[in-house]
Design a protein around this nucleic acid. Structure first.
Length: 482
RNA sequence: GGCCCGUUCGUCUAGAGGCCUAGGACGCCGCCCUCUCACGGCGGUAGCACGAGUUCGAAUCUCGUACGGGCUACCA
């Protein structure tokens, strides 16, 4: 049987990293087994679902390169299917109308709590007579539809991640609401557990791969599969991504959506690599891998069952590794939009070589793309302001003389490559009889406005290419200094 | 409260009874490289939650305890 898996986000928020990680596991599993990966948008909560969230989810998956083979399917376009399933359950005596009001349920739960019992629906409307139903209808009460959960009974499954999991139906909270009460003229909307099961059956899903927070839904869904006479899929409940406090990562934790990570300057391949590592480990113990390599090795045997804390430091390291491995041309492609967004005037076509030079210069120091803005700022403006340390450097004994000598001998190096810049500095060092460090630190301060930064020789060469080198040198030559 | 699940360096993890004097990676610390900051290289630091049991032998199996998490809607 061919593998068919799915990711089923609800468009009630941006694509969350937890959802994306589940998507990756599904995608990897599908690729590993030559199966299909399906996208389904679970938008039955019409109050909270928004089209812009659907767009965000689609964009996020695309950015990550998690292409799906079928879909997106929308649950709101499948309402007849759910109604048919509900009707089937009703017809077969697996479901019934329940008229208990929310207030009555609340009272019930409070009483149970007061007695120290677990809150649950007591199935009180399971066997209503036609007269009782008529009475409630006459009162104008709108029923929900509940699915009968026979108690007690053991429900267990072999989870691909956690092994055998067993549940007793007594702990499921009583008969399950599968359709909301109808509004005037509008039939009751189907609820999550019903819709999921109907969809997974219709779409021929063979493995349900989802987060651990869904384990409690699984026994309910298994019962629904059985009542609908369908074959059970396999289940895999993956560990959760945790925040620094060890709790499930939620929107409240700040940066959690894929679009946020994109905006922060992470590369999709790095983020993917990191997400996969949060719970799965490759058999060869290599930390850095491509998705397609992971797909050739992916296996639930190697998925952890414990939750994993999200670690920014490690993500940064992985991102830096990907950034450092990029060729200057590729890096420039990613950096140019970032520089443009920062307001640097540049011509991506005419200045291509120069821009690639900058990319090559800052590349090895980068952990996130936007760092290249501040790091290369002195290469995008004709004049720089000195920071306090740079000012101090230029006041060092001999600094001004060195700069003067540098500017005077610059003409001897018309094609100032990084290598030639080295010769240039050596010549001045010798002529001045000072330490090379003094010359270089002073030159750095004058050219970049700071005492720390990327490689000085390359910087000088780049500034020279741009035609700013001499000007930059003289900008910081105090007329009175000797 | 109830149910389910989990627990190896600070963090992510390897480990399926002897290969473990518990391995790798991030971080951190030190050294090297170096005009600087990074990068890179080398080295160091640090862990099997606890207690019983099974066994010749347990990080690995069993039970209990503790701690942590998830779920407990007419949300998904």
């Amino acid at each position: 049987m061919t593998v068919r898996v799915r990711i089923a986000p609800s468009p009630t928020g941006n694509l969350h990293i937890g959802t994306a990680r589940t998507a990756v596991f599904n995608w990897l599993y599908a690729r590993r087994h030559g199966g299909q990966f399906i996208l389904r948008i679970e938008d039955t909560d019409q109050e909270r679902s928004k089209p812009e969230y659907t767009q965000n989810i689609l964009k996020g998956l695309q950015w990550l390169g998690l292409n799906f083979d079928e879909g997106p399917f929308f649950q709101t376009q499948r309402l007849e299917r759910y109604q048919a399933a509900v009707q089937q359950l009703l017809d077969h005596g697996h479901a019934y109308y329940c008229y208990v009001s929310e207030a009555e349920l609340e009272t019930l739960r409070e009483a149970q709590k007061a007695r120290g019992e677990a809150p649950r629906y007591d199935n009180r409307h399971r066997n209503l007579t036609p007269e009782q139903r008529a009475e409630f209808e006459a009162q104008g009460r709108r029923p929900v539809i509940r699915f009968k959960i026979e108690e007690p009974q053991e429900i267990s499954w072999r989870d691909l991640v956690r092994g055998s999991v067993t549940w007793n139906s007594r702990d499921l909270g009583g008969d399950l609401v599968i359709a909301r009460s109808a509004e005037a003229g509008v039939p009751g909307q189907p609820l999550y557990n019903l819709a999921v099961v109907v969809d997974d059956i219709d779409m021929g899903i063979t493995q349900v791969i989802r987060g651990e927070d869904h384990v409690g839904n699984t026994p309910k869904q298994i019962l629904l599969y059985q009542a609908l006479g369908a074959k059970l899929p396999e289940f895999a409940h993956t560990p959760l991504i945790l925040n620094a406090e060890g709790r499930k990562l939620s929107k409240r934790d700040g940066v959690t959506s894929i679009s946020d990570f994109q905006a922060l300057g992470f590369l999709p391949e790095a983020l993917l690599n990191y997400m996969v590592l949060l719970g799965w480990s490759p058999p060869d113990a290599e930390e850095l891998f491509t998705l397609s390599k992971a797909a050739s090795q992916f296996d639930f045997e190697r998925v952890n069952s414990a939750g994993a804390r999200f670690d920014w430091t490690r993500l940064d390291w992985i991102n830096s590794q990907y950034l450092h491995a990029l060729a200057p041309a590729e890096l420039a492609d990613r950096l140019i939009p970032v520089w443009q967004a920062a307001g640097y005037g540049l011509d991506p076509v005419a200045e291509r070589a120069w821009l690639e030079g900058i990319a090559a210069l800052v590349g090895p120091s980068l952990a996130r793309l936007p760092e290249a803005v501040a790091m290369a700022s002195y290469l995008f403006v004709p004049e720089v302001e000195l920071d306090a340390e740079a000012v101090a450097q230029l006041q060092q004994p001999g600094a001004q003389a060195a700069l003067r000598a540098l500017s005077e001998s610059l003409a001897e190096f018309p094609e100032l490559s990084a290598e030639a810049a080295g010769a240039w500095i050596n010549r001045v060092t010798k002529a001045q009889g000072v330490k090379k460090g003094l010359v270089m630190r002073s030159l750095r301060a004058a050219l970049t406005g700071a005492v720390h930064g990327p490689d000085l020789l390359q910087s000088a060469a780049l500034l020279h290419q741009r035609g700013w080198l001499m000007q930059r040198l003289q900008q910081h030559l105090a007329p009175s200094a000797v």
